[in-house]
Design a protein around this nucleic acid. Sequence first.
DNA 1: ACTTTTCGGCACGGTGCGTGCCGTTAGGCG
DNA 2: CGCCTAACGGCACGCACCGTGCCGAAAAGT
Lengths: 200, 200
Amino acid sequence: MAEEPRRRGAARTDELLRTTLELATERGYTGLNIETVARRAGVGKHTIYRRWPSMAALLLDALSRVWTTDLDYHDTGDVRADLREQFLRSVPALAEPPIGPVYRALIAEAQADETLRATLHDRFLRTVEERTLARIVQAQRAGELVADVDLTFPAEVLCGTLYYRYLLSTRVADEKTVDALLDMFMAAYGRQPSASSRSR
Amino acid sequence: MAEEPRRRGAARTDELLRTTLELATERGYTGLNIETVARRAGVGKHTIYRRWPSMAALLLDALSRVWTTDLDYHDTGDVRADLREQFLRSVPALAEPPIGPVYRALIAEAQADETLRATLHDRFLRTVEERTLARIVQAQRAGELVADVDLTFPAEVLCGTLYYRYLLSTRVADEKTVDALLDMFMAAYGRQPSASSRSR
DNA sequence: ACTTTTCGGCACGGTGCGTGCCGTTAGGCG
DNA sequence: CGCCTAACGGCACGCACCGTGCCGAAAAGT
């Protein structure tokens, strides 16, 4: 999204992204606009507009910087435990600054801009869904989950439910939630009948 | 949210809500602001502010007007068919005007306002989740679903997944999606083992 | 040293916000 | 019936942010 500036730019580009994340952390969603970022960075607005066509584009790049999300599912051979560990690790990261405010700002702007909505999904959510799918497909191959079922949609349900909690409700996605979600998933696709996986 | 105006107000209040919905239908999310509503209704801005403290409050009331959502789950004795019918009926209603634009506008504003987020959830999503829960609990009592499982969270997953699709991705929640969702739900909580409910 | 391009700074018109202050008008009351 | 009070429409304000244009300065490339 950011075109490489020719001369002094690279360092400035980097600084602007850092400034954006700083602002998100200190002042939250409210402080996230171009004027404020420019003022804070001691920069003319052109310097920003030369790099990004809109605030949304700047936010997308800023988010990419921190969305490392240590999204690396373990594979201990216990798919439920691995999913659980990953969910409990990544959900708080989503809510806290700087990711939280930046993400919220993008969600807000995306409501008015379908293209942004698609970009947002492609660049972030899709990755999460795909990695999740990869992990459960692996479990399926290992015999932990029932065979002959397309797990694409279940992977979306797993991720989507957590995002729904965070973005559309005020309920936190705590351990209880994650466990209930995994109960449902394992009850539907786990190998052993039901009772054992449905407890806990 | 709207306090009853004393004299000329009731009719005006009603007219303003209708004007808001008209604007949402004709111009979408973009046309939804107080100035535009006031201009369109031929009204001073005070007349709006006297009734609602913010655009969000006005939108909430406007949404209530059209959120009848014919949310009435049938009970034909086949819970899967009843859920399917309801989902396919209500999902498009959510996307089309006037509900779509108004809802999107609220989602956008709610990102900056936690209280609004809670209100939005309480006034709309919670109802949907509760009715869904009521229907599947009934199915549980009828022996269609496994007993001794708390279905509160599954009800949230059912609704949440559809909202996730609509609000955070650009994928539509079509028949295939609804069927896949119900596959998962029935596989997890349906009475008959798995194979039959997982097909389709 | 000279050119090119980015740079910061400033100002502009435009839009929407929320709040004042008019004079007007409708509804309720005596 | 006429008065009085409250809601009304219209207008203007200061504020914030948007996106753009123009300046002279400074840095990078030649």
